[in-house]
Design a protein around this nucleic acid. Structure first.
Lengths: 155, 155
DNA sequence: TTGAGATTCATGTTATAACAGGTATATTTC
DNA sequence: GAAATATACCTGTTATAACATGAATCTCAA
């Protein structure tokens, strides 16, 4: 019996090692998730990365964060945080201000408009996420998280 | 105790719902994997997507595949297979030929150079993949694959 | 306090992703 | 068999990713 993934990517031969299938499975699932999350956010004019930045800055509160710190907190590596924040500043979702104490730093903060947009987009996202994860038992979710940690650590 | 992922993305508050962490975990792991696989392939002058195309065409044999079929078999959705194949043709890894029977189709086939490159790159990739997945038990791998299938299906 | 190195950000450039629209060929329908 | 529709691909354009480099500022040691 061909595996589900084998069908999805129309692969004729079965996977040689189960690890191969698991690895492709992770990449495939992330791709599917990213696509669907981006589609969800599109009506709000946000990409997943932008949404992620808004959440990070919301969490940071009035202190804000500098670009490097935002980059460290992003789920996916973004090699050009500077211009990402520029674009979001252009959209008035974020404000940038050079730090007085250390003038190398530019502190970014979420604006009121950014907070409003985040508040509008979040419920839609949470509902969709819930719908995806509800079918897994608590134990499965825990096992999934642990397995992924092991895979990330092995670097 | 903060979770591993919480540390990685320096998130101060714990995840509200375990599903949230699982979802971010998938995206994070895929990002880490993609980065490391692309680094592995860099010495060969290949990206993951290009490597993926070579494998697909190798599997298709001398019959080759048209662009749409290649797109369907790719792990991650690529919205511009046409130019992806153009670039690979430019590199002489792939040949393109308009199909005589149905002139809308352009059949792509892997070239000898493509096969040689694939043969060189694959062992490095397989070793790295093995290293990552060896720490998981067979049962964990199976559970991981099943959990990810459930998540993908819930769309 | 000054010079070396580190840190943070900006900028230039190229390649690729993403989106929209157009063209040629097949297929279906009437 | 002609028109309408569908399919597969290409092309143009814009936005973003990716990479490399440079400029400004800070830190720390001598």
């Amino acid at each position: 019996m061909p595996s589900r993934l084998q069908d999805e990517i129309k692969q004729s031969r079965p996977f040689e090692r189960p690890g191969d299938e698991a690895l492709l499975s992770i990449l495939r699932t992330a791709s599917v998730l990213e696509y669907s999350l981006n589609e969800l956010l599109r009506p709000f004019g946000l990409t997943m990365t932008q949404y992620n930045v808004l959440r990070i800055l919301q969490g940071a509160g009035s202190a804000g964060l500098c670009g490097r710190e935002i980059g460290e907190r992003l789920v996916s590596r973004v090699p050009d945080v500077s211009r990402l924040l520029d674009r979001m500043t252009e959209l008035a979702l974020v404000s940038k201000k050079r730090d007085a104490a250390d003038q190398r730093h530019v502190t970014s903060r979420i604006t009121a408009k950014g907070r409003r947009l985040l508040a509008k987009a979040t419920p839609a996202l949470e509902e969709a996420e819930g719908g995806r994860m509800d079918r897994l038992s608590d134990r499965s979710v825990k096992a999934l998280i642990e397995a992924l940690e092991l895979i990330r650590e092995a670097s």
